[in-house]
Design a protein around this nucleic acid. Structure first.
Length: 283
DNA sequence: ATAGGCACCTGGTGGC
DNA sequence: TGCCACCAGGTGCCTA
């Protein structure tokens, strides 16, 4: 589910409940997600004020007044939802604990933030705020696609000597952060580039064209409140709308959206994952 | 260094 | 209903 736009949507949804609020209780309902939780995680979170909520790639980073930062990754199926009354003005009830509710943060404003993740590919860790960028999970990640360090010259230089399909290259988080299977397919469609084309053999002008397109695809999705598939929900439980805007993802055998194009969308497997594209107009 | 494949885990869907 | 195969948003790790 969660690529950069979904993670950013979740971050924004959590902000009113978590930012500048104190975690008065942390329920840790199992010992691990993808990896074991850090030592004494509940104690290290309890009574800590969240001083800021950031996002880096697909990670949410909650800065704490202890000088530590809580790192959260949603994996494939992770969700974070808010219940209760963040303003703390009214009596309210919280929903019962559900299956796969692995971590629950009780905030001093009355909000409850629940991390639910059936497949448990997600992760949490605690790291020093000042050295967060050197954390093993963050150290090798490339530039933010919506930031200034991701630009045309950079992408051309990165892809120039790559012998891997452009699809795989754009999924490589070391080249650019935050893209996943859906938005790579969508960006390549808008750029009219076949996912099978070797990155290094695509002309510089076409590579350059990918930069504003990637920015646009991600911005559109964030503006729509995230997408992704079937069950993506924003922190307030509302469904994201971008899923209604997919041109290729999940549209196997459906007509190509390019005006005048008579093609239908194909699904192929690359590196074990589905790629959707129009073989007629993506070259 | 780079590229490709597997593993981790659960649930939903569709066919028989 | 039951069983089974296949598919799913990610990414660390291992092997050539």
């Amino acid at each position: 589910m969660p690529e950069l736009p979904e993670v950013e949507t979740v971050r924004r949804g959590l902000e009113p409940s978590m930012s500048d609020a104190v975690i008065v209780q942390a329920d840790i309902n199992r010992p691990d997600l993808r990896w074991p939780f850090p030592d004494r995680m509940a104690e290290r979170l309890t009574d800590r004020r969240v001083t800021g909520l950031r996002r880096r790639s697909k990670y949410i980073l909650a800065d704490l007044d202890s000088g530590e930062t809580l790192l959260i990754h949603l994996g494939m199926s992770g969700r974070m939802t808010v219940s209760g009354d963040p303003l703390g003005q009214f009596a309210h009830t919280h929903p019962a604990r559900e299956k796969h509710d692995h971590v629950v943060f009780h905030m001093d404003n009355g909000a409850r933030v629940t991390f639910n993740d059936p497949r448990r590919f997600g992760a949490m860790d605690l790291l020093n705020t000042t050295t967060a960028e050197t954390h093993p999970l963050l150290a090798k990640i490339g530039p933010e696609p919506l930031g200034n360090n991701f630009n045309e010259d950079y992408l051309v230089a990165q892809l120039k000597s790559r012998n891997t399909p452009i699809k795989s290259a754009l999924l490589d988080q070391r080249i650019v952060a935050g893209l996943g299977n859906i938005y790579v397919c969508e960006a390549l469609f808008r750029a009219k580039i076949s996912p099978t084309r070797k990155a290094g053999q695509i002309s510089a002008p076409r590579i350059r064209s990918l930069v504003p397109i990637i920015r646009e695809v991600l911005s559109d999705a964030i503006a729509a409140g995230g997408s992704s598939l079937k069950d993506f929900r924003q922190a307030d439980g509302e469904l994201g709308y971008f899923q209604h805007s997919f041109d290729v993802y999940g549209r196997e055998d459906a007509p190509c959206h390019t005006p005048e194009c008579r093609g239908v969308i194909s699904r192929i497997t690359q590196a074990g994952r589905s790629s959707f594209y129009c073989a007629q107009c993506q070259r």
